[in-house]
Design a protein around this nucleic acid. Structure first.
Lengths: 136, 136
DNA sequence: AACTAAAAAGACTATATGTATCCTTTTAGG
DNA sequence: CCTAAAAGGATACATATAGTCTTTTTAGTT
């Protein structure tokens, strides 16, 4: 249960790869896909999502490709995961307004809130910088 | 992402209902299902799983039904969830032996381990007793 | 202007998972 | 032996996941 999908896994691999490159190095999608072992067409969809919210910058045409949208130390794993997987929702009942007609008397609700908080907190505490294999 | 399935949700509702009944009160599946608003055939499957691992005791035939397998204060939410959803696996890479051929150099791995630990810890810290609406 | 490189966008397919339902079998009591 | 109730197995349908293919847009090059 609670498993990250391939999409999320691939998203992380792809953007961590970008984060490990020089900040001004425009990378081809095809190169990224080959480097992190992800189907290029699938990674394209993922990077389109990233691009829309500014996590990466994209350039079309000859000499085009992708750059990281912000400095790696300013992008958290939580942002990356939520960008492609949507919000961290351990149970429907934690969305607001509560979808659960049982809230009010359901004692499980606060537990899921806590789970959500812990997961978000762990992921928000990790930046792309820490995930690259670059020293210094 | 990371959403509990209906099965998990129903499982919790069903067993919490049982936990709120007197310890020796044999409950009919049909009554439980009606009380917690879950399709009876679906709940049957769930309780079969519970029964196999002793979370509930089942009795067949006339006068049959279900009892909680242990005292409510000795059953955690983690056990209930894992009974029907399987282990808490935020990413494939946390299963042992690691399924991820990238472990060893992948810096994300320990993060997922931490997520897994936090979620398990929250769920393990809640017992069925605390989830019933019974006072005292 | 024409050609080429590269990402964006949209339609489409296959497989797996989730959400059940139905039918038959087993077990137990009256 | 009849009835009540859970167990087990097969099946059906919907949705989500995982991925592909084709066309369009954008931008640099010749």
């Amino acid at each position: 249960m609670m498993e990250l999908t391939r999409k999320g896994e691939y998203a992380i691999r792809g953007i961590v790869y970008l984060a490990g490159k020089p900040i001004d190095k425009v990378c081809l999608l095809s190169d990224i896909a080959a480097a992190v072992d992800v189907p290029p067409t699938f990674l394209a969809k993922i990077f389109q999502q990233f691009s829309k919210i500014g996590l990466v910058k994209s350039f079309r045409g000859t000499g085009g490709g992708f750059l990281l949208g912000r400095a790696p130390e300013n992008i958290t794993l939580l942002e990356v995961v939520e960008a492609v997987e949507g919000p961290i929702i351990p149970n429907r009942c934690v969305v607001s307004p509560p979808e659960c007609e049982r809230s009010g008397f359901c004692k499980v609700h606060p537990v899921w809130k806590r789970v959500q908080g812990e997961v978000r907190s762990v992921l928000a505490g990790v930046t792309l910088k820490e995930l690259t294999n670059k020293e210094h």
